[in-house]
Design a protein around this nucleic acid. Structure first.
Lengths: 150, 150
DNA sequence: TAAACAATTGCAACAAAATTGCGTTTATAT
DNA sequence: ATATAAACGCAATTTTGTTGCAATTGTTTA
């Protein structure tokens, strides 16, 4: 319940021509609070009955369309959401992302400050590249600590 | 209906201790026929009533477990399947993959012969890397030809 | 080649996830 | 304070994925 953050979130909504509603602020709060990206099921679980499931779908959808958050599909096909940092605009994401997907807890981490090499990718003829992203899989910090967990 | 290919597929099943059934051979045939990976909905659509939906799920699952095919989740969260080439074993995929996901038709292509750089990824402390893969998005050959298609 | 056995399949029922329509409520501008 | 469009919640529906079980089929072996 940080006041600064609340104001920041409200400003974010206004900036994008969205009404300041409790449900939306709640979602923004959840996304701010988690270090990793938040999975849709997780968000759903956290908000419980406070926000209708349909409303949640729609909130996430409009946030994504406005470029406030971006959606990351993890290795199991589950949608995860995180704030857009860096160069995300409403219409395109121009940077090279790196996402880390933990094989144990399935959490998705956006690694912003990893040094990523720029290189020319040679695709088959006719293929045009719009974006390149890196997906690392392995064990996150928490799960590395757990011994012998399958 | 290539005879050579049929024998090859039958051998593949036998090698993995699986019975030669019509449904399985059909799935292998479909996967062989498509240049890109085949999405689960596509396969389902192609086979129609010939193979029960549940059976298809199970076939794909066992094929994946045996390391015959691998599953690729595309940007929409849809499962796609393709044969394992290269260094796939039953238990792990050791190579660095490159997948191309078309933003227009959503098809997933496994790009095997692209030169991928090897580099040391610096992850946050505690994170251990098991695999790194590359996901390129853009327009595939077919969709590049189409003018102004949204 | 026939019997025996386990693997595989299909069906039905179920559960979970996602979508649509619509009436009501609410935030914001006037 | 009121008008208005946006946002929400509920109900119904569709789509997707799972489970259990009985019937069938492929393969082994006698």
């Amino acid at each position: 319940m940080n006041t600064d953050q609340l104001n920041q979130h409200e400003a974010l909504l206004v900036k994008n021509g969205l009404k300041k509603t409790g449900a939306r602020l709640r979602v923004l709060d959840i996304l701010s609070g988690s270090e990793a990206a938040a999975s849709q099921p997780d968000i759903e679980h956290v908000v419980g009955k406070d926000i209708d499931r349909v409303t949640l779908y729609r909130i996430l959808k409009t946030f994504e369309e406005k470029g406030i958050i971006h959606r990351i599909i993890d290795n199991q096909g589950t949608a995860n959401y995180a704030f857009c940092h860096n160069n995300c605009s409403e219409h395109a994401h121009h940077d090279e992302h790196l996402h880390f997907n933990c094989v144990n807890c399935q959490k998705v981490y956006c690694i912003d400050n990893a040094h990523l090499p720029h290189f020319k990718l040679n695709l088959p003829p006719g293929f045009s590249l719009q974006q390149l992203s890196f997906v690392a899989t392995g064990r996150c910090e928490n799960c590395s600590k757990l011994t012998e967990q399958k």
